[in-house]
Design a protein around this nucleic acid. Structure first.
Length: 591
RNA sequence: GCGCCCGUAGCUCAGAGGAUAGAGCAUCGGCCUUCUAAGCCGAGGGUCGCAGGUUCGAUUCCUGCCGGGCGCGCCA
């Protein structure tokens, strides 16, 4: 069976009706995007409404209401629509057949955890890259927001019928890795009684001290060199009025010289692997898994980087200036040209990224989604330019920008600074507020909105905490089923589904309506790349459930009505669970 | 200076051409001998930053201004 939302089904019917008028009332076939159906805000306008007649009236040179009448009359016979009416300036209002919601409830039970999935995405192949934090330190709270957003968006896209591949791009190349190696080695020397002043430009976080201890346990004193030999002839660091980059670079050179390249690489690899391992564990614990961790370094070793640059050069998109190789990005929509090979012969991060994105296209992905921090917006034009220069469509790259996270405790903003090594890690945050509140809070706001994360609210076990509201609805539904058992009764699904027509109460209708909207909410949230659409929906669905719960008793004496109500409760519970699962939030049986 | 994002209820935010602009929190008033009160119901609260424009219709799209945030490396 093809999975479609009610909205999609209605749009399909409407499309057929409109097509039937082409050549008659309508001069030409309209664009499919003009033919849409929306949920009504007010039930006195029916269940769904369409503005199609108003949109087509001008081109057709027809009165909108007249056109609406004609379109409504041309709707093919179907079991979905009870009746239509033309209202206002030319709206077509749809009233669903009484059985439509009963069918939908039956589908919830039939499909279970798969309810809500649709084929809307037409199997479009999407690669979504997110977090991709530098392996130079632990993940912190901002990465958590990226992880929650990216993982949930991936879930939504898959549910909406796309093929989705999740990727973490590992920035394991470049100078930062050398700095990491030196930082670790200096911590190791410290432990070994050969302390050297720690550079301002190094990675100062305490995590490297732990890794240094492991290194010491593992290799013993083999990497120890005299502090005096390390610092001999080095330029001044920032603290002494020198240049911090110059000092770090000199230290890197000195480390290579004293250790030898292979030992230096061993230290580097030790730090990188350990930090990447921690990231992977953190993300898995947070419910975020990837299909692939893609190494930046592998672009160089596989030759992909050289191939990409050769291709650009061949097309005449590169030129030499000031000893460096530049890409003519300004000819492809960027504000200025960009360096791809530096004066010192090393390729830039941007060069890797061109090769990486070309590789994504060559692997067959239709759409490339990069989830980036809002600070990276200047980067988008550059990478699009690279794609364009390679002959790839620049709009195959889409970049949702995630705004910053600010933590608050007791009304006070927590200071976070990566440079000083004092920041709240994702691990610490999860330990304090738990996975559920963490993911829910990260997704509560639009991703382009800066997020104030209130730790007191997230840990509050009170009604002020929004994550409990939705979970509580699920737990309450479970509780009803347990209560049923305790009374020696069972839920007779067939009887319940056969009697959904008895659910004529206002609150029952509202709840049925909201349940049936789930599939189209997923479609909308996926299409707009807005997980918070699902968050808001779940709050509304939970509200519909709580209101119903407070106004009616479900376990009544009359078996048909009891089972019909239990079917509604069970369907609501299933949809809440499916929705929370997409968000990566648990659906507890009791609270 | 250039570029991107944001200005909606007291606060935090949804809504992205459509009918009377919504939610949570806060405030005030009700609801537990009955399936979990982490719940429900009700009330008050708005010049959708300002000014033009496009449109049958603009909070939504366009332009300009005002206000706030961020970014503009041969770093990654």
């Amino acid at each position: 069976m093809e999975a479609r939302s009610l909205k999609s089904q209605l749009e399909q019917l409407l499309q057929q009706a409109v097509n039937g008028l082409v050549g008659g009332l309508l001069p030409t076939a309209p664009d499919a995007s003009q033919i849409s159906v929306e949920r009504t805000r007010d039930t006195q306008h029916g269940d769904f409404a369409s503005n199609v007649a108003m949109r087509l009236a001008k081109a057709a040179r027809r009165n909108p209401r007249e056109l609406a009448q004609a379109i409504a009359a041309a709707l093919p016979a179907n079991a979905l629509i009870e009746r239509t009416e033309v209202a206002g300036a030319g709206f077509i209002n749809f009233y669903l057949a009484a059985g439509a919601y009963g069918t939908e409830v039956a589908r919830v039970f039939e499909l279970g955890a798969a309810y809500g999935q649709s084929s809307r995405g037409r199997n479009q192949s999407i690669i979504i890259e997110f977090v991709s934090a530098n392996p130079t330190g632990p993940l912190h709270v901002a990465h958590g927001r990226h992880a929650a957003y990216g993982a949930t968006l991936a879930n939504l896209l898959r549910a909406a019928g796309h093929r989705v591949h999740r990727e973490f791009y590992v920035n394991d190349a470049g100078r930062q890795m050398d700095i990491l190696a030196v930082s670790l080695w200096l911590r190791y020397l410290e432990l070994s009684g050969e302390a050297v002043a720690f550079p301002a430009g190094g990675y100062q976080g305490a995590y490297l001290k732990d890794i240094a201890a492991e290194l010491r346990d593992s290799v013993g004193a083999g990497l120890v060199r005299a502090a005096a030999a390390v610092v001999a002839g080095l330029p001044a660091d920032e603290a002494e009025g020198g240049d911090k980059d110059g000092y770090v670079d000199a230290l890197i050179a000195r480390a290579r010289e004293l250790l030898g390249e292979s030992a230096f690489q061993e230290v580097l690899g030790r730090a990188r692997d350990r930090l990447l391992g921690n990231m992977r564990t953190d993300l898995e614990d947070f419910g975020v898994v990837y299909d692939r961790w893609y190494s930046e370094m592998s672009l160089a070793t596989s030759g992909a980087l050289d191939r990409a640059l050769a291709r650009l050069r061949q097309q005449g998109h590169l030129y030499q200036k000031d000893g460096a190789t530049w890409f003519r990005a300004s000819e492809f929509g960027d504000e200025k040209d960009r360096v791809v090979v530096r004066e010192n012969g090393l390729t830039t991060y941007f060069a890797s990224d061109i090769a990486y994105h070309l590789d994504k296209r060559e692997r067959g992905f239709d759409l490339l989604i990069d989830v980036l921090g809002s600070g990276h917006h200047g980067y988008v034009a550059r990478v699009r330019g690279g794609l364009a220069a390679m002959g790839e469509p620049p709009d195959s790259l889409e970049v949702p920008m995630i705004q910053v996270v600010t933590l608050f405790r007791g009304g006070e903003q927590l200071q976070m600074s990566k440079r000083s090594g004092q920041f709240v890690t994702l691990r610490e945050l999860r330990a304090e507020v738990g996975n559920d509140a963490c993911r829910f809070f990260f997704l509560m706001r639009g991703h382009e909105q800066p997020l104030d994360f209130d730790l007191d609210l997230a840990t509050a076990r009170t009604n002020e905490n929004p994550v409990y509201y939705v979970q509580y609805a699920h737990a309450r539904a479970s509780s009803v089923m347990k209560q049923l058992q305790a009374r020696g009764l069972t839920f007779e699904r067939a009887e319940g589904l056969a009697n959904v027509k008895l659910l004529t109460g206002e609150l029952e209708q509202v709840l049925l309506n909201r349940i049936a909207a789930f599939t189209e909410i997923i479609e909308t949230a996926a299409a707009n790349r807005t997980p918070q659409t699902l968050v808001f929906y779940l709050r509304e669905l939970a509200n519909g459930f709580h209101s119903y719960y407070n106004s009616e008793r479900f376990i009544v004496a009359e078996s048909p009505l009891r089972n019909a109500r239990l079917a509604l409760v069970g369907a609501a519970q299933q949809v809440i669970r499916n929705g929370l699962t997409l968000l990566g939030v648990s659906a507890p049986e009791s609270m």
